[in-house]
Design a protein around this nucleic acid. Structure first.
Lengths: 339, 339
DNA sequence: CTGAAAGCGCTTACAG
DNA sequence: CTGAAAGCGCTTACAG
């Protein structure tokens, strides 16, 4: 039983093949009577348009690729948990728009050739993942050369002054740290990488600085702990600090994962959170309300982010100009910071 | 600047277009000299094969669709967290095999037409998500009719005696409950749906029963609490039990999410886990080690599951026979069950 | 090992 | 609103 083609439908409906195509694609006016006959014939033969022929002929692919970079830090999950609801929302929103989504896990080891292949599987690419600037730059340069639209969530991309989709990291961090200061915390650890290689974290560091400056507090360099984003690194960093005897009464972590690692170490060392140390995270993973004490954090709005990413990419695909979009964050106060 | 075609490469390399195709697809022998010239020309023009033309002409799609059913229970995440590492592993493994993966979130509200469209976007479909049997049956019947291969992770599908890919739920549950009994627990709650509508949970109930039977213990029907899979439902169920005054000293939950909800309620009511009540989950989400006490659980092997799903689907696509596959689970003992 | 040619199943000007 | 016809960019018998 061969799969039916539009010619089979045409024969059954008593119209030309071209008319079948027009009726089924809803692009040209077709008489109501013909339309019904075509749909009935299609239903009877279980016919669906061959998507590959349509894509080839129309030159519209109607598919976006989501390239998620593998997260080698974490123990078992290969994708950083923050990106999971974001991917879910992208699937959701793209689904509503009738756009297919190809998802690919980008291994650190993989050469760019693999991604490059996406250039004709999708109209554009969304990059997700905590990669440093250099990694993105390489990939993005190739895409620029072949004229393939792309967008990254998170970092500010050099050489693309108008293109930014990400949270308002500076304000989010500022509000979080200002809250800790308001609670009376004076020696607040900054847990994360404060370098321009990861601009989203660097912006959070700037918010941390501004909150201190506005409160007339100086930033103690010994409290800025350079580490990446996993729970293990958060735990290890706090352990080091404790071992050194560096005193602190607050922790602002650039990810919830780091904050959770910090809390686990603090508790293991007999310290009370939030009594002895207030802890604040960033992201608002669903895990925040599973742990004890529940984690205060800066919520990133993944639903809005997904919409903005998909819409921005759609504009780029259509050759339109895009605007830099900073998505507002929201401070979520729970048990871990006391007060 | 128009995108180059195989004719452009042919002209540049001084061969026929057919030879370009053969050199680039690695399907027919081509002389080394010609091969090099073709690859050089392709590289120079940034050429990649048009995947849509290839798919149309060759009739090989080389793509699988992962259809994840939306999880309406949980507060924010749209996909049950258990499926996340499984999806990650599918992306990983399929990527290694050179197969594209189309991921789609299936809304409960959506009509089947949406999925049906996948029939020609992908060679086959992997279903993921906790849906009851009736929901799957409907979809699967259509696929059977149009001859599209599919596979579901979890439930035993009626009418497909040879097709099963899932964890060995009965044994996993048996081992978990037997462990609780060995610790001296005698009144163990079964938290989850013990009905054939969800065969994976029903199998876990059978394991719960067998562990009791082997220990010479009778199963108390008042301790089998019918509830679905979210944290909220787990919390509410335990609350009801406590309010009723039904005594218990152990909880076996069919998902970690339920177990976490149970622990939160127990602690809120002033009970100590594991001193007063031992709690055991199922899945081994990464969250298990974030909470306090860390959750004992039955680990489902998502890496193996992903391989088996992709390989089984590949066999079905090739028209081969498949075997029923029960993937072994592993009991992971942590703080929450004491002992 | 290579070339000339047919054709995969659609969409879309071009006419009417 | 509808039909006849061209053609999207490949793969793959068919010959040599």
């Amino acid at each position: 039983m061969k799969r039916p083609t539009s010619f089979d439908i045409a024969a059954l409906a008593g119209v030309s093949q071209a008319t079948v195509s027009r009726a089924l694609s809803n692009t040209y006016p077709v008489s109501e009577d013909v339309r019904r006959r075509v749909y009935e014939a299609a239903a009877k033969l279980n016919y669906t348009v061959d998507i590959n022929a349509r894509k080839l002929r129309s030159k519209k692919i109607n598919t976006i690729a989501v390239l998620v970079s593998e997260d080698l830090d974490s123990e078992d999950s290969r994708i950083n948990p923050f990106f999971l609801p974001l991917i879910g929302s992208i699937l959701d929103y793209a689904g509503d728009k009738g756009v297919d989504v190809l998802v690919s896990l980008q291994k650190q080891s993989a050469n760019w050739g693999a991604d490059y292949g996406f250039a004709r599987r999708a109209d554009g690419i969304i990059f997700l993942g905590y990669r440093d600037f250099e990694t993105y730059k390489q990939k993005v340069d190739v895409l620029r050369e072949i004229g393939e639209p792309w967008v990254v969530f998170g970092p500010v991309m050099q050489g693309e002054p108008d293109l930014f989709v990400g949270s308002d990291n500076e304000t989010g961090a500022y509000e979080a740290v200002a809250h800790l200061i308001r609670l009376g915390r004076k020696r607040i650890v900054f847990l994360g990488e404060a370098s321009e290689r990861h601009s989203e974290f660097f912006e959070r560091f700037k918010g941390y600085q501004r909150a201190h400056a506005e409160a007339g507090l100086s930033v103690n360099p010994a409290l800025a702990i350079d580490c990446f984003i996993s729970r293990e690194e958060g735990a290890a960093a706090i352990q080091r600090l404790l071992d050194q005897g560096t005193g602190f009464d607050g922790v602002f972590a650039v990810t919830d994962l780091l904050a959770i690692g910090a809390i686990q170490t603090l508790q293991k060392r007999g310290l009370n959170v939030p009594k002895d140390v207030s802890v604040m995270g960033f992201d608002d993973l669903w895990v925040c309300t599973c742990i004890n004490p529940e984690l205060s954090t800066v919520r990133q709005d993944t639903t809005t982010a997904a919409r903005v990413l998909v819409d921005t990419l759609a504009k780029l695909i259509d050759g339109e100009k895009v605007n830099m979009t900073r998505i507002p964050t929201r401070l979520v106060i729970r048990e871990s910071c006391g007060g």
